[in-house]
Structures are given as structure tokens and as C-alpha cells.
Design a protein around this nucleic acid. Structure first.
Lengths: 196, 196
DNA sequence: CGTTTTACAATGCACTTGCATGGTAACAAG
DNA sequence: CTTGTTACCATGCAAGTGCATTGTAAAACG
């Protein structure tokens, strides 16, 4: 066997380039050539690791999702001593495009959605991402004592608010203050027991 | 002067074709040629009415927004005898992709958003559309007696919920029942006086 | 050593893209 | 009838697209 290369590592590096291009230049901006240039490799390399463009895009989107989820878990784990009550608002604000990193994520997610509206494979991926996010939010709400019988509705409701706050904020139709006010109102409406 | 043609009418007809293509084949599916074919005219005709593709797309998006707003107003006006209390939930459900027409609208709006993330002109248009929608929702909430001091927050909150319910429903990650349950929960949380 | 498999690189191809150009047909104004 | 303006249509073009093909260098294996 020839040159030993970490296959998956290379694919992830290319996926990073795809995500950057999706965020900065949109879906049309991610061609085989621009991706290769962004990743600093030749077009042949990209073709070597992905047999078709569709596979490349889908891999990048999936990678982006897993990566986001991993970073979230990592951040939650980085504060093991902080009680859930103090942590969960921080977690939810991380899902809003308030800094450059999450702005990029929101842009990628928009490109993802617009593709999912057309491409069934992307649609399945996006639906799965929604399911995972909802499950995660549900677990956070359970952490802070939202009663079991309202967990379904509360998590659906909160995910909708988070999703709906994202785009107006990203486009500048809302200020961060207005956005956070709505988030706080939503969190306040949850039936959280205030035991110390 | 030559053949008398309703200039604006032709542009709107082409805009309809653009919206159809955006909804069915996404942003990449709306090329000058496909638009011409969808509208049943030659490519030269499209070029005659729009000097550049960007102008065509932006016009179509603007037209789509105005059209949606007009249809909404028309539907509200079609029931002049119904009290606001009974009308406003109907109005809000119309903004969710529950039937084919509003599903098309939601798909167009997604294409709009993904373009707005890249193109500043589209961004301005989209931000304006959010502002208009929020103002309209605010007026509806005022109609049903939401107190003045909570109108800002309530309208922002409700718009976020509507926006956030749209995409998971469109992608099949939520059922219509789950979606409407969240909407009803949001409406129930408003401080509406229940006079008689 | 030689062979084989992997990891690219370079180029070519058919196709689509937005746009420019040149022409033509129709109709109103003089 | 002539002229001028409008409303197209047909075609051409450079650039970009995804993908196939071919070539090459390197390293593990016999």
C-alpha cells in the first residue's frame, strides 16, 4: 500500500472549505474548483475523496452538524460545577447568531435548509438535525426541572423560538437586545420550579 | 409608438415564473432560460423586461412579498363581520405551510433568505419584509386587545414562533398537529382580555 | 528488486450560464 | 407612405460547471 493518509481527516478538511464557502458565498459559490482552492488542494484531490459533488455537499453538511453538536456538548461539559439553572440560558444563546462563529453556523444552516427544500437526501438530514436538536433541548429543559408532561410542547416551542429568532437577527431586522428579550420571555414562560 | 403592451403586467407574469422555479427547483433552478420556458416566452423577452438577472430575481421576490401581503389583507377583509377574536388564529395559521399555496410561499421565502445571506440588496428587502410582517402581526394583536405596553415583545415573540415553526413543518420534522399545538400555546400566553 | 495500490495532478469535454448583438415585425406618429 | 419606436427572437460568445480520462510519483508488499 502507498502513501499513508488519514482519509477521513482529509475529507473533513475539504468539508471545512465547503462550509466556509456556503457561509460566505452561498450554495452557488461552492463549486468543485472553488472548494479545492479554499482547501488549498487541487481539483483532482477533491474528486479523489468524493466521487460526486452531491456526496461532498452532503458530507459537509452532516459534518457541520455533528461538529456543532460536539462543540455544544464540549462547552456544556466544560462547566461541570455550574448548576444547570445557570447554564441553560448560556446554552440557548449559543444557538443564536450573536458572534462570528454562530453567524457562520446560521448561514450554513440557511444554505442547508434551502437545499433541503429541493433535495430529498438533504431533507432527511435536516429533519434528523431538527430531531436531534429538539431532543437535546428537551434534555436541557428536563435538567432544569420542567415537568415531564409539558416537556414535548415546551421543547418544540423553544426550538421554534430559537429557530425563528435566528434569521431576523442575522439579517439585521432585529437587534441582539430585542432577540434576547424574546428568548428570556420564552424561558420565563416555562414551568420551572424555583427551588433555590 | 409600437405594439401596446402592459409593461408591468408582463414583468409580473415573468416574476410568477421565477417564483414557481424558486419554489420547485431552488435558487439554482431559476436561470434566464428556465424562467423563459416556464413563462412561455423566449429568452429575449425576459432580457427585454429585465436588464440583468439580479434585477429579475429581486423584482420577483419583492413582487412575491407584496402579493402575499395583498392576499392576506384581502382574506382579512373578506370576513368583515367576524370579530377579530375569531379571525386572528385563522390569520396566523395562514402563515404556516399547511396547504400547497403556503408551502410554495415557504419554499420561496427560504430561497429568499439564502440569497439575502449573500446579496446585500436581497438582505435589505428581506429585513423590510420582516419589519412589515411584524407591524402587521402587531396590529392584529392590538385588535384582539393585547395591552399596548407588551405589543412590541408580543409581536416579536409571535413572529419568531411563526418563523420557527415553518421550516421543521416544511421538512416533515414536525406534524401539523405538533405545530398548531405550539402556535396555540403561544397565542394562549398572550395577555388577551376575555371580555364576554 | 519489481509490482501493485494509493494519492493525487493536469487536462479535456460536453454542457449550461448570463449577457451582447443583430435582426425583424408590428404599430403609432408625421 | 415614411419614419421611429417598441417588442421581441435567434444566435453567438466567453466563462464556468461537473465529471471522465490520463499520467505520475510514492510507498507498502512480494
Amino acid at each position: 500500500m502507498p502513501k499513508q493518509v488519514d482519509h477521513e481527516e482529509r475529507r473533513r478538511a475539504i468539508a471545512e472549505a465547503v462550509l466556509t464557502l456556503l457561509a460566505t458565498r452561498g450554495a452557488e459559490g461552492a463549486s468543485l474548483r472553488t472548494v479545492a482552492a479554499e482547501a488549498g488542494v487541487s481539483m483532482g484531490a477533491v474528486q479523489h475523496y468524493f466521487k460526486a459533488k452531491e456526496e461532498m455537499i452532503l458530507f459537509a453538511l452532516e459534518y457541520g452538524n455533528e461538529n456543532l453538536a460536539a462543540r455544544m456538548r464540549q462547552r456544556m461539559a466544560a462547566h461541570p460545577d455550574t448548576p444547570p439553572r445557570d447554564l441553560y440560558r448560556y446554552f440557548f444563546t449559543q444557538l443564536l447568531p450573536l458572534d462570528e462563529e454562530s453567524r457562520r453556523g446560521a448561514r450554513v444552516w440557511m444554505a442547508f435548509l434551502s437545499r433541503a427544500a429541493i433535495d430529498p437526501a438533504a431533507q432527511r438530514l435536516a429533519a434528523e438535525a431538527y430531531t436531534n436538536l429538539t431532543a437535546f433541548v428537551r434534555a436541557r429543559l428536563a435538567d432544569v426541572g420542567v415537568p415531564a408532561e409539558s416537556l414535548d410542547l415546551a421543547s418544540h416551542h423553544l426550538v421554534a423560538v430559537l429557530e425563528g429568532l435566528r434569521y431576523p437577527l442575522l439579517l439585521g431586522a432585529r437587534t441582539p437586545e430585542e432577540t434576547l428579550a424574546v428568548l428570556d420571555a420564552q424561558l420565563a414562560s416555562l414551568s420551572i420550579p424555583d427551588d433555590r
